[in-house]
Each structure stands twice: as C-alpha cells, then as structure tokens.
Amino acid sequence: MSPCDEYSLKALRYLDDRLHGQELDDFRAHLEACSNCRASLESERFLSQLLHRSRPLYSAPPALRARVAAAVEQRSASIGARENSYERLLRIVGSGFADPVRPVARLRLLAATLAVTALVLAFVPNAVRQVRAANYVETAVTTHRSYLDGHLALGIRSDSAAEVTSWFTGKVPFQFRLPQSTEGGVPIYQLAGASLVSYRGSPAALLIYEKQKERISLLVASSQSAVVAGGEEVRSGALMFHYRTDQGFKVVTWSNHGLSYALVSSVSGSARESCMVCHQSMADRQNFQSDR
C-alpha cells in the first residue's frame, strides 16, 4: 500500500472531522505536498455535496403519508381514550405531578390544584374556553365560529404583538413570540387580540387577526397533543402545509418546532393569502401575495 493509498482512506474521516492530533497534522502535511491527494480530497468533497443536494433520495408518496397520518391519529386517539380523568388532570397540571415514586405528595398537589382550579373556574368563567371537538382542525374551526358568533370573548384586546406575547406567558405550556413588524407601513392584517382555549385538556393559544370585516384565527397548540394531518399537502422547504376547506372555512395547518398551527379564515382568495397574517412584515411576503 502506497502512502497515498493510506491517506486516501483517511480523506473521508478528514471530511467528517474525525481526524485529530498528530494524525490530522500528518494528513494536512501530506496534502500540502501531494497534488494527487488534494485532488482526491476535492473529489470526495464534491461527491458529498452532490449527494447532499439530492436529498431525499426518494419522497414518500402522498398516499403513504396519508395512511401513516391516519395510523398516528388513531393511535393518538386511543392513547387519549385510555387515560382516565385523574391521569388527564395530571397531564394538564404538569409533569412535576407525574412522579411515580411520590404518590402521597402527588395526591396533595392534586388536591391543591383541584381547589385552585375550582376557584379559577368560579370567578373567571371565561379564563379557559373548553371546546369539545374530535380533532385539531375541528377545534380550530369551532373556535373560529364561536368567535365570529360572539360566543367567545377575547382574553386580551390589543394590536401589540409584544403585549399579546407577554399576556400568554405562563398561560400555555410552551413558549412563543409573535412576529413583529420590522418595516414601515400599515400591516394588511391587524392583530386584534387573543384568548385561551383548551385542546385535549391542554391550554392552546388563540390569536385573532382582522382586515376590515375579515376575521382570521390562528390556533397554536403543542404538537404533542395536536396532530396535523390530511388535507391537500404542500411541502415548502422543511415544512408540510395541509390545506382544506371545513364547514365553509379555509383551514391551513402545519407543525414546526414542536408546535401545531391551524389558520382558519373565510378569505375568498387563495389559501396562501391567509399566510400573510404572519408573513406580511417578513422578507418573503411576496411568496404569499395574491396574483390578482
């Protein structure tokens, strides 16, 4: 085996940052002196880039995606059905209660939580809106309709993204920040306010946007409980968007960074236009504007 053969075997480890110390120094020194090995290394680097550009090797067919989504939905529903009320409450009030080795402490905490919950519900009946619905889309549409019909009062009325973001702190089991306009001009969709709704026993964030007489709602929940699936699937980068019409409303759902989103509107144009709610002040806004 020639020295070049030996270094050729090390080229992949070098590209993977797996050469260290003296071995790395020796490899670099050899590269300085050997044009063949430099060319070989570049060849390996080019092949890696070519393979990475062609990811994924194959795309799963939509029918397969739908079947797997249905299986996940079914599994998710069966897990929910198996949980009794006690377990469900434990889940709602936090993982700190789910310590299996401290049942007495857990019961005390549970009793205290029940008392606090009863007080909250007695004095602040609209603190959490419980919406009975089978799935995330249905919840989003039902909530949107309740708001349109005047049956759902907003917990906060404000057009300030910072105020609304701050209002949600500690109210939902996840952290998020509303996008703020970084450019001048009047936004097309105005933030109107927000509220809390309950989805499968866990608080979810409801955001309301307005444009003249149009109302758009955005329901945000943890992806652990809110499963996004079905509809017409459109991939954009790493995200998969699901478009559908439900009870006369346009619904777009997607998941990202552990959160599931459902955007409900009766916007007459393309469904993509409703994405302007969040993207109106972003650099990619032209991707969502109507061609009309």
């Binding site: 090797l57 194959y58 995606r65 998969m240 998941s255």
Partner: peptide
C-alpha cells in the same frame, strides 16, 4: 405528526412525518 409515549418518563419525541422520506 409527533407522538410522545405516556409512560411517565421523558421519552424522545417521534416525528414520523419527518422520517417518512428517509424510511
């Protein structure tokens, strides 16, 4: 499409949709 087991401890999240092209 994420699922998390309900067995008490903090398990890793499974996002099947994300893994589907690879699988």
């Amino acid at each position: 499409m994420q699922l998390r087991p309900s067995n008490g401890h903090t398990p890793p999240t499974i996002d099947l949709q994300e893994c589907l092209d690879g699988l």
